[in-house]
């Protein structure tokens, strides 16, 4: 790894000030992805600001929702009784992430920022626009089984790899961020950005921005939610396709739905066309299946990942059928 400065932040203000000043400074929390990136020389921060000492861990339940501190470990959220009851999609996504050991270390805030598993991004002997802007994107015509069907550009088709952020889309979560200009809230849907011509930019965060919490609003549909992850190996693998779904129903009618997919897009991807096809419709298996057919709209498959179009539809359909009690 490339040498870097290391300092544990004494408080939040100091962490933000340092990160805003030092070009190339990055925060480190659980470090489960950061250490891989450092060891393989994928990233070379000038300074690592350790935020583990900041008081940002814990789950707080209020009338209007839940506030999960950014430094809460994935395992602790997965074990939280209130989250289990009120937001099953989140807990299911967490339990499908990584391994128990990794979940004991990884934090909720850091998890949103995990970098892509695109094979070319991770091997520094290969070109990669995300790692080295302008060097090229070999994934377009290379080993791209894991790469994105949705949200790609000629510059990058790297898949956003996480599960949690996809689940958060289904419950209208917000990301609470503190920065040099004070705190603000960013809807999870707008937190990540598509690569376009600047694949090195992955979120709307600015230098000095620090994720402080995830906000899960109380909602009619979060309780009726589900996360389904499809992969080659039964555990400890990123999704080839995943679906996070939530339904708000009035007995036999779907009032509204939330449907997002992972493992198939350059950012956590909301399928509004599927949601629209469900809104106001009767809660029936055929309706759910027909709506799931729309999941492939706009997909841009490549030879190595074309199978994921059908896979994504099946994954969405099954998740909807499960949550709709029609499986």
């Amino acid at each position: 790894m490339v040498p870097f400065a290391y300092a544990a932040a004494p408080d939040q203000a100091d962490a933000i000030a340092r990160a805003a000043q030092a070009r190339g400074a990055q925060f480190i929390a659980g470090g489960t992805d950061m250490l891989q990136l450092l060891q393989e020389r994928v990233t070379a921060p000038s300074e690592l600001i350790d935020i583990n000492g900041l008081p940002l861990a814990g789950v707080d339940v209020a009338q209007n929702g839940v506030r999960i501190g950014a430094l809460t470990r994935l395992a602790d959220v997965a074990d939280d009784e209130h989250i289990r009851q009120q937001y099953p999609v989140v807990v299911q996504a967490l339990l499908a992430s990584a391994s128990p050991q990794v979940r004991n270390m990884a934090t909720m805030g850091g998890n949103l920022l995990q970098r892509t598993r695109c094979l070319y991004f991770r091997d520094v002997a290969a070109p990669c626009n995300k790692r080295e802007p302008g060097s090229g994107c070999p994934a377009q015509d290379g080993v791209n089984r894991m790469n994105a069907l949705l949200g790609g550009s000629p510059h990058c088709i790297a898949t956003y790899p996480g599960d949690l952020a996809v689940a958060l889309m289904a419950v209208d979560a917000e990301v609470e961020v503190a920065g040099t200009a004070g705190p603000r809230r960013i809807p999870i849907e707008h937190f990540h950005v598509v690569p376009g011509a600047t694949p090195q930019i992955e979120t709307v965060l600015q230098p000095g921005d620090l994720i402080t919490a995830l906000l899960l609003p109380a909602s009619a549909f979060a309780r009726r939610s589900h996360y389904l992850k499809v992969r080659d190996r039964a555990s400890f693998e990123w999704a080839l396709a995943s679906a996070a779904v939530a339904l708000d129903t009035d007995g036999s009618t779907i009032r509204q739905a939330r449907v997002a997919v992972g493992g198939v897009a350059t950012k956590p991807w909301r399928l509004s066309q599927v949601e629209q096809a469900l809104a106001g419709q009767p809660l029936r298996a055929d309706v759910l299946r027909t709506a799931a057919e729309r999941a492939g709209d706009g997909a841009q498959p490549r030879p190595g990942n074309a199978f994921k179009v059908e896979l994504m539809k099946h994954t969405v359909a099954r998740a909807l059928l499960t949550v709709g009690g029609q499986a």
Partner: peptide, 16 residues
């Protein structure tokens, strides 16, 4: 996962 353009194993780690 062999990429013939580079003569490299692209998934050369235990994650992939």
């Amino acid at each position: 996962d062999w990429d013939a353009r580079y003569g490299r194993v692209m998934n050369a780690n235990l994650a992939e």
